[in-house]
Design a protein around this nucleic acid. Sequence first.
RNA 1: GCGGUCGUGGUGAAGCUGGUUAACACACCAGAUUGUGGCUCUGGCAUUCGCGAGUUCGAGUCUCGUCGAUCGCCCCA
Length: 424
Amino acid sequence: MAYQTIKGMYDVYGEEYRYFEKIDTLFKHFAELYGYEMIKTPILEYTGVFKKDNDTSDMVTKEMYTFTLNNKDYLTLRPEGTAGVIRSFVQNKMYGNELPVKLAYIGEMFRHERPQKGRQRQFNQLGIENIGNKDPLIDAEVIAFGYFFLKTLGIKDIKVLLNSLGDYDSRLNYKKALSDYFKDYEAELCGDCKDRLFKNPLRILDCKIDREKEFVRNAPKMSDYLSEDSLHYFDKVQMYLKALDIPFMIDDRLVRGLDYYTDTVFEVVSTNEESGAQSTIFGGGRYDNLVKEMGGPELSGIGFAIGEERLLILAKAEGIFTKEEKSLDAYVVNLLRDDPYALEVLSILRANSYSGEMDYYNRSLKAQFKSADRRKVRFTIIVGEDEKKTQSVNVKDAKTKMQDNVRLDDLIDYLDEKMGEEYE
RNA sequence: GCGGUCGUGGUGAAGCUGGUUAACACACCAGAUUGUGGCUCUGGCAUUCGCGAGUUCGAGUCUCGUCGAUCGCCCCA
């Protein structure tokens, strides 16, 4: 095979494409319900938009598609949606509007990772960002958006995980406390965790190998390092979620990947085994400093991103998307050669919102009827020499199996009447 | 970035310890039935087994490489 897609990238077409569209349509509907404006930002941005000094996450430090152009511009294919949206918020001075500014996006993201189920190198995310205000009500509303979106889609096998990382300083303090604590146990840590000790000690709490070890369980708790304000804030978020009947679990080991998160973080994970190792359907959190870091005013924001491919895996596993046959209203059986009459008939149909197809290959009558059948059409319209002479068509109704000769001028009225009969 | 498994037509696949016409089913096309289909019957449909090299008299079957998929780790949506 000479030509093929790049590893981890794939084509979306046919049935799959329709599923994506269904999800997108519902998402846009939710955006409208919740007062979010759709936004498209470029797929390609200056690297600095995504990568800040001191970034530690793998996503930013080693998974980005970054390259240079003309030996000077460092460009990156976006690995996530938030940074670009915030960049746009600042660049377009959207903070001049009434706050919060609520933006939603759908688009492809790129991460150079080893592909596996639920993880592609190019994939799609549905996300929202609520920028400008900091209030537990907003946190609850953002989570509600995601949660009810999934519920409305029909997803059942999910749970909501919630945690608070505290403000920026308490997060730093906690990180340091953990580092200090685990240093004494370095010899007992797994290989990965030895790295995490310096890079991201919070991850040790989450480690599949080490998490059950006694000294890990006894490690300092995040909650002990939260400020009064943060604790209070977190309590309110929980209170509001309860008021909205959104079930959630506190997971004090929940750490999100991006460096910019503060206070509320959340994740929705699939409990369906079809999701495999990539069970996180969506994740998000609040970011107090990001807008300012990007050169804007000191405004807090919160958002989430849903992995559309993962959502699709789950939706399929739960049987939400049943195969539906695409059906046509009419198929024009064309017995003429080198003659536009059949196409004229089709054109009339389409101009009146009847979908239709015809035969272009001079196939036998039988073959054409077979096609009509396969496409599950209601009306098979036969067109030949006689019909052309009399400017008429023969219409066979698949429902009644009856056939009528109808004048071309009366065709649409005839079909309208037939369609109308169903509702009587 | 690391480890395991896998790769045969449009699809699902068979192919035993290497033996030479690559099974079967579905789908598709044509005919029986040259202006009326969905059933049936008949016939057609992979110069070739992801790609490349090697071993061999001989490779879909063995070896190596490569590309891809998949599962797990890491990480994350």
